[in-house]
Design a protein around this nucleic acid. Structure first.
Length: 231
DNA sequence: GCATTAACGCACG
DNA sequence: CGTGCGTTAATGC
């Protein structure tokens, strides 16, 4: 994989331009939330989709037979959330929680959303694309769990992370952390302690540097190699 | 071996 | 000053 090309794709073109989601949802008011706030409570009764314009939100599913909530993934600016309500107007398992300091989002009732999609062929196509991307992302996560060991998954998560929200600084990349080590563990299917040790190992190799506020990728190429390397 | 859980001390923000 | 982090020992497969 050519990471330099992948990095060039940074940004969210879907949020600008005449056919962007921002334009399509222009009439829906923006709402603001802070870290830890819940956008969608588990067992809510009404169907809404959400459009995230700023910040980061994680989704969790609840499994009553285990009495446990597991992290499904996270959304960044420009993404649609809770699209599952398209075929069932409520989504009782799912919770949406803000993980960044601040999040700005729009709430679109499912009936309004359906009407928009049915009258707008472009939006229809875009939704297909977005859904497939979300499915692919989940597939990739599952495949990584099957094919790679935990330390590699942490490195792979870092690479995803820098692609999505990293900022280029000279030859390095900075990620401002909306995640704790525990959350990184949830998302790369490993434990908090493993995340800590892997990150410190990468730090000692001078591939990355980090504090509680940010992660600096010092050597992206080497990190890509690290993600492929066996145990 | 490879990773998880528990446990505890420490210090960042 | 709370909780997120770093480390290690015990345990499982």
């Amino acid at each position: 994989m050519n990471t330099s090309i992948a990095i060039e794709k940074l940004g969210t073109p879907r949020t600008t331009g005449p056919f962007s989601l921002n334009t399509i949802f222009a009439n829906f008011p923006e709402r603001s939330a802070r870290k830890g706030d819940t956008l969608l409570k588990r067992n809510h009764s009404l169907g809404y989709v959400f459009f995230l314009t700023q910040g980061m939100v994680k989704t969790l599913s609840f499994y009553p037979e285990k009495n446990k909530e597991v992290v499904n993934g996270y959304f960044t600016a420009g993404e649609m959330m809770n699209l599952e309500v398209w075929h069932a107007t409520n989504n009782p398992k799912v919770t949406l929680k803000v993980t960044s300091a601040k999040a700005v989002y729009k709430v679109i009732p499912i009936n309004d959303f359906r009407a928009l999609v049915l009258q707008n062929q472009g939006l229809n196509q875009l939704m297909m694309t977005i859904l497939l991307e979300q499915i692919n992302k989940n597939n990739d996560r599952l495949h990584r769990l099957l094919l790679y060991k935990s330390r590699q998954r942490v490195v792979q998560f870092l690479l995803d992370y820098v692609n999505e929200i990293g900022q280029r600084v000279g030859y390095e990349y900075v990620i401002k952390k909306p995640f704790t080590h525990e959350e990184i563990g949830n998302l790369s299917d490993t434990s908090r302690q493993t995340v800590t040790t892997v990150l410190n190992e990468l730090k000692s190799k001078n591939l990355i540097h980090f504090t509680r506020r940010y992660i600096l990728i010092r050597n992206l190429e080497a990190l890509v190699e690290e993600s492929k390397k066996e145990g």
